[in-house]
């Protein structure tokens, strides 16, 4: 049985629009428009979409914060809104732009308080905290009030706070937003280890597609409240005919030398000294061997398919 299951999940918001000098008309806007989703225990799911697609709204319905306008949702076998308090003990939530820590208290105090709030046995709490302290390097700012932490430090604190009660599912809503490269890597590496352990199901929404590439085997893309892709990253590349690219620098301008089947010239730049080939079939080795025969090959680089480009094409499709 899936750990997270939704059927026709919908959320409508009522907005008022001007319809005259003094009149306002109410309109129902569907933020989430019939999402069917099944997530198995231990999965690492990337849940992405453009701004306003309904990602955060879905997460809020799955965590019991928002009541759905229609459809069904089950998380850990519980109905999120009706059984929110019970569900809260079994899930962890990290919102990149919000804090669940106590602003005026040191991080250590927040963690201690969460032990009582979630009623976690002392030994379990201590063991999990020790693990997070080691993996997320918390010790240097454990006694600093939350209001004085940098964004990267706070986010490491937020992730720890969400894990101290041993949740079955961890929802992460843009956990790397605004972080510097080092903090992003620390957070990604920690989440990758957590997911690899297999005890915690991860649902990650983000606009940083590097998060998805590094963490998620399965990708659900939504747009205008509907699922437009549900599958692996490789399937997404296949769907959009993503190609690896080979960029070659030449000693002489490109003269149109015949190239192996499957390779096509995409761009010719730098007065013909730099050529970019797309590979729809064949290997980069075949192409390089063919070019080496001309005697003008100076340098070669191979570029993997660009996820950002694929997702941009997906978002640009009419819903």
């Amino acid at each position: 049985m899936p750990l997270i299951e939704t059927t026709g999940l919908r959320k409508e918001f009522t907005v008022r629009r001007k319809a005259g000098r003094f009149r306002r008309r109410r309109h129902a806007v569907a933020a989430v428009d019939g999402i069917d989703l099944a997530v198995e225990r231990g999965e690492m799911l990337g849940y992405i979409g453009p701004n306003g697609a309904g990602k955060s709204t879905t997460l809020k319905m799955l965590t019991g914060v928002l009541s759905p306008s229609g459809g069904e949702a089950r998380v850990c076998g519980l109905r999120p809104v009706a059984q929110r308090t019970r569900l809260a003990r079994r899930i962890g939530v990290v919102f990149g732009q919000r804090s669940q820590l106590w602003w005026d208290l040191p991080l250590r105090e927040s963690f201690r308080l969460l032990r009582y709030v979630y009623r976690v046995p002392s030994a379990e709490h201590a063991a999990r905290l020790a693990e997070c302290r080691r993996l997320l390097d918390l010790d240097e700012f454990l006694d600093t009030p939350v209001r004085q932490l940098s964004l990267g430090q706070r986010m490491r604190g937020e992730i720890t706070a969400a894990l101290l009660h041993g949740p079955e599912v961890l929802f992460l809503d843009e956990p790397t937003i605004g972080l510097d490269v080092v903090s992003k890597q620390a957070v990604r590496s920690f989440l990758a280890d957590l997911g690899a352990a297999g005890d915690t199901t991860l649902v990650l929404t983000t606009h940083d597609l590097a998060d998805i590439e590094k963490l998620c085997r399965r990708l659900v893309v939504i747009d205008h409240g509907r699922v437009v892709h549900d599958g692996s990253l490789a399937e997404l590349h296949a769907r959009y005919d993503s190609r690896r690219r080979v960029v070659v620098d030449l000693d002489a301008p490109w003269d149109g030398t015949p190239v192996p089947a499957g390779a096509t010239v995409e761009t010719v730049a730098a007065d013909g000294f730099r050529v970019t080939f797309g590979l729809a079939g064949g290997t980069a080795g075949d192409l390089v061997a063919a070019l080496a025969g001309t005697g003008s090959l100076r340098d070669v680089s191979v570029l993997e398919p660009d996820i950002e480009e694929v997702v941009a094409r997906l978002y640009a499709e009419p819903a």
Binding site: G64, A88, R98, S99, V117
Partner: peptide, 17 residues
């Protein structure tokens, strides 16, 4: 500010908390 959602994600009734 929307931060109230963090209150609702805890297993304690907000009024009691």
């Amino acid at each position: 500010t929307g931060d109230v959602q963090s209150d609702l994600l805890r297993p304690v009734h907000p009024v009691l908390s």
